[in-house]
Design a protein around this nucleic acid. Structure first.
Lengths: 342, 342
DNA sequence: TTTATTTACTAAATCGATTTAGCTAAAATA
DNA sequence: TATTTTAGCTAAATCGATTTAGTAAATAAA
């Protein structure tokens, strides 16, 4: 039982494959194929379980109906949920998605871009690792549309969708201040990523706007490959002795940090929010069932996913359409739970 | 700047594309192409930033170096982690992965299989929804290898990788019994899936082996689209009044159930493990930072992912190799945390 | 009746690679 | 010197679709 091709149908019916192609593309009328023959072709296609070879179509038409997605790690629930939204919207429009996890490694993402390029994807959705500017710049010289998500590079003109990280961090920090916290720390990862940088900037601005000096010792910047050890250490440093806590609140810039952080905090015997208040970016499921459910900055994942796909489709359908670049900065949602006290 | 093809290089150097193809495939020596020309071709390829068109290669060779993956939902951390392992192992072997989330919907998975088929994937890794036997049966009539993961159909001979769900549930239940729990409930989803069925069977066997009658009222089977509401209801039914709990322990058959369940339990003001002990399948991150970290049955996700990919590669490389079907039932790991008391 | 138009279809080129079969000139052998 | 072998390369077919440019026969118009 090998697959039937267009030609097989043509031979079987004694007609040309041109005709079969016309009919199966629903263009029978347009090309004045008689109803009788149209019906026969369609019947034969069904009977022979004809499945068009998308590879061959792709070669001929230059369109593969495939989108390449590069994110940090599909196992990370934030990206998992985002990936799901992207897959969903793509499927609605007849596109498949090739998933690539870059681990925030620019070398990997470079290889993945090359691979996707070779696969002739019709567009890319990319969450670019730091130090991947050259690759993104190279991409923008090509004709294949792409959109950056989660972060972008200020000095490269591209389509992008991000959230207002500065604003979100500002509000989160202000929230902690209003609840009487004075020594607010920020645990984050490498600040070369614009989104992470904006979060810390928002945090700082909220402090200074409220007359509090930024204390460098309260900002812990971890390397990307942060292991529990790193976080443990950072938290221990922040906390010091239980009787004399250096920090009374922590803003975690990612949920991975936050989840590990909470584990450490519990291990140290500290109570949330009594000893220390917590706010985190990203609405991880775990945050709902914590000892004290965690107040979070939630990102509009569905909107990001939908928009990303639709920008790509837009660009595919009208490569020279306006505006030349679509750039969105979406609002986040601040969800208040018990982890900051009341 | 449009992409350079093999032919472009050939024209540029005034040689045949056959020659270029030979050289770039590293078969220059084999075909006695002079070192001088070899070098020139390779230089030109680099200079012109030649990227082979995988679509064209795929059409000619019948190999796309692509694997299709169908799971329930990539946003579910269990599948996210599994997907990651699969992607990783595939990438190591030069394969890309097209991700599809079926939502446990057989209609969707049918369409996704058709789409992957049209995309000429070299193999499938599938976690088949219930009622998807016909599609799987159809697949096994084709020549493209596939492997089922997480579940399989007893009456279709296929490659598969599952875990010993019966054994895992048996041990988990026994653990609860040893700690003195008498009224152990099981919350699960539709039992038509063999893996879910095995979990409940293992639970039952452990009870009867310990002289405890199986109480149907303590087994709650939720529909797949289980909303928090369903779980709330199930738990309220199990619990009844706080003074007179119907159940003193719950075995959750999936982490999605468990996470929602714990949320409900907390909302009802019940304490884990004092009022009620908890064991769950799947080692969700959230379980580590719960009020009482949750004892779990952890699946060897890396092993599953690696094996799945390698079975596919095996079958691609030797379609008629032995054994005809590779079938693995892997052991789970039982991780004891605080949620059952001591 | 002749020409123009319409109907219903087909041949062949094309996309970009791989691969088989074969060709020419030089070198080796008889 | 004649023949075989080897080195070094190329033409053309092929994968399975799409699409352009056409053709033959039937019908309509002149």
């Amino acid at each position: 039982m090998k697959k039937a091709s267009l030609n097989d149908i043509a031979i079987h019916l004694g007609v040309s494959k041109t005709l079969v192609s016309f009919v199966l593309n629903g263009r029978g009328k347009e090309f004045r194929i008689s109803d009788d023959i149209c019906q026969k072709v369609m019947d034969a296609a069904k009977e022979m379980n004809y499945q068009p070879n998308r590879i061959a179509q792709g070669l001929r038409t230059g369109k593969t109906n495939t989108i390449g997605l590069i994110i940090a790690d599909i196992a990370n629930p934030f990206f998992g949920k985002l990936g799901r939204e992207i897959e969903k919207e793509a499927a609605l429009n007849g596109y498949s998605v090739i998933f690539c996890s870059s681990d925030e490694n620019p070398e990997k993402s470079k290889q993945q871009i090359a691979m996707l390029q070779q696969s002739q994807v019709d567009g890319y959705i990319i969450s670019p690792p730091m130090n991947s500017e050259p690759q993104i710049r190279a991409l923008s010289k090509g004709r294949t549309p792409f959109v950056l998500i989660d972060r972008y590079f200020a000095d490269i003109e591209t389509n992008y969708i991000v959230v207002d990280n500065f604003d979100a961090a500002y509000k989160a920090t202000t929230h902690l201040l209003k609840l009487g916290r004075k020594k607010i720390a920020n645990i984050t990862v490498n600040l070369d990523l614009v989104n992470m940088k904006a979060r810390t900037e928002g945090y700082k601005k909220a402090l200074t706007d409220n007359g509090i000096l930024v204390d460098k010792n309260l900002i812990k910047v971890l390397p990307f490959s942060h292991e529990s050890m790193d976080i443990s250490l950072a938290i221990t440093e922040l906390v010091g002795h239980k009787e004399d806590l250096k920090a009374d609140a922590i803003l975690f810039s990612t949920s991975k940090l936050g989840l590990n952080g909470i584990e450490c905090i519990s291990a140290l015997g500290l109570k949330i929010p009594d000893d220390i208040a917590i706010v985190s970016f990203d609405n991880a499921d775990a945050y709902k069932i914590c000892v004290s459910p965690v107040t979070v900055v939630a990102q509009p994942l569905q909107e990001i996913g939908k928009k990303a796909v639709n920008i790509i489709l837009d660009k595919i359908n009208s490569p020279n359409g306006t505006p030349k670049f679509q750039q969105y900065t979406l609002k986040t949602e601040f969800i208040i739970r018990k982890s900051c006290g009341y």
